[in-house]
C-alpha cells in the first residue's frame, strides 16, 4: 500500500490526527491515549505491521510524548511513526506487549528511565538501573551531581 494512502486510511480511526508522510516509505500519525488500544490492534491485525522497532519517550517539559516506530518485515520496509501525548501528572498508557512481544523491554526501559507507566504490562520493573534507584534520570527535571574537577 502507498504510504499516503495508508496514512489517509489510518486517519479515519477514532482519535487519530495529523497524518503526514515523512519519507517515501515512512508515515507519521498522532493518536490520543484513549484510542491507542484499538488503534494498535488495527495496526497489527489489519495493516500487517508485525515489527515494533522502538518506543521512545520524550520529556516535553509540559508533558510526555511517546513515539512508537512500527515497521513491516518485507522488502519494501514500510514504517509508521505514532505519537501519543501524555499529561505530566498521570503518564500512563496501555501496554502493547500482547500484540508485539518485542515491545516488552522497550516499555520497561521507558518506565525505568522516563517513568511512563504501561497498564497491562506483565512485568513492569527497572531493567537498566539497580532496583533501589530513586527517580527517572532521563526526565529533564532530574538533577544529579557531576563530579567536575578544577584543573
Amino acid at each position: 500500500m502507498e504510504t499516503g494512502q495508508l496514512v489517509q486510511q489510518l486517519t479515519q480511526h477514532d482519535g487519530a490526527s495529523d497524518g503526514s508522510v515523512l519519507r517515501s516509505n515512512v508515515g507519521r500519525i498522532s493518536i490520543t491515549r484513549e484510542a491507542s488500544h484499538s488503534f494498535f490492534s488495527t495496526l497489527k491485525n489489519d495493516f500487517g505491521f508485525d515489527h515494533c522497532s522502538l518506543i521512545s519517550a520524550v520529556d516535553n517539559q509540559t508533558g510526555f510524548e511517546l513515539v512508537y516506530h512500527f515497521s513491516i518485515v518485507d522488502a519494501a520496509g514500510q514504517m509508521l511513526e505514532v505519537h501519543i501525548d501524555l499529561p505530566r501528572d498521570t503518564p500512563t498508557v496501555d501496554s502493547i506487549t500482547h500484540l508485539w512481544g518485542g515491545a516488552d523491554w522497550h516499555e520497561r526501559e521507558a518506565y525505568d528511565l522516563m517513568g511512563i507507566y504501561f497498564i497491562g504490562h506483565p512485568d513492569l520493573k527497572r531493567v537498566l538501573l539497580p532496583d533501589g534507584f530513586a527517580g527517572h534520570p532521563l526526565r529533564k527535571d532530574y538533577v544529579y551531581e557531576i563530579h567536575e574537577e578544577e584543573w
Binding site: 538501573l129 534520570p137 532530574y142 544529579y144 557531576i146 563530579h147 567536575e148
Partner: peptide, 13 residues
C-alpha cells in the same frame, strides 16, 4: 577517571 562518561549519573569517577 570516568573518561568520556565523566558527567554521567551512573558511572563512578
Amino acid at each position: 577517571g570516568g573518561g568520556p562518561y565523566w558527567d554521567s549519573y551512573s558511572v563512578v569517577a
